[in-house]
Amino acid sequence: MNKMAKGAIATGVGVILLVGGGGTLATWNQAQTAAMGSVVSGDLNLEVNTATNIGKWTNAAGTVVDIKAYRVVPGDVLTYTQDLKVTLTGDLMAAKLAVTGTGANTSFLDKNVVVAPTTIKDGVKAIAADDVLTPSVNGHVVTASTTFTFKSSTDARDSAATKAYEFAGVGYKLVQQAPPAANAS
């Protein structure tokens, strides 16, 4: 018997054995679905709410001003407001909303201007940097507000005219806080 024939016989025996193994299907078995469903992630997002207030400066008279062209004089009080939409979903979702980039970047003298710390309000309720936000505020539009005051007491023209206060670095950050069990993972 040549090698080719021996190989064919061995293959055939193997196939027969495999078919024989199918006999295990003859014993009982039962299956159940786990019904585990789907794990769905939550969401965290912070965005400018363009539908209501993309960000605007107003002067003491309540007039909206173009800050690129507007020049302040002693006694001017300008307020910047901006609406932010908060998205917070997830059963254990918790986050803090903070103002970033508030370091003064200015050529004004400190004695001549006052920049009040930026405040964020959800309706009438102020949100502090340490406040932990939960999904209860999901979809809320909060309002950030910053006030710049050029003091009326500014008297020396040479040290106060044509100065600038840069706010471009100011931003807002929504940061998730670790769920209680997160440290274990």
């Binding site: 912070l46 400066w57 600038a164 706010f167 100011v170 931003g171």
Partner: peptide, 19 residues
């Protein structure tokens, strides 16, 4: 590992007038 989201205020620059 935790999520965060940030936006810039785009508040620009306040400039003093000349006198």
């Amino acid at each position: 590992a935790l999520w965060n989201s940030a936006v810039n205020s785009n508040a620009g620059t306040v400039q003093a007038a000349d006198f």
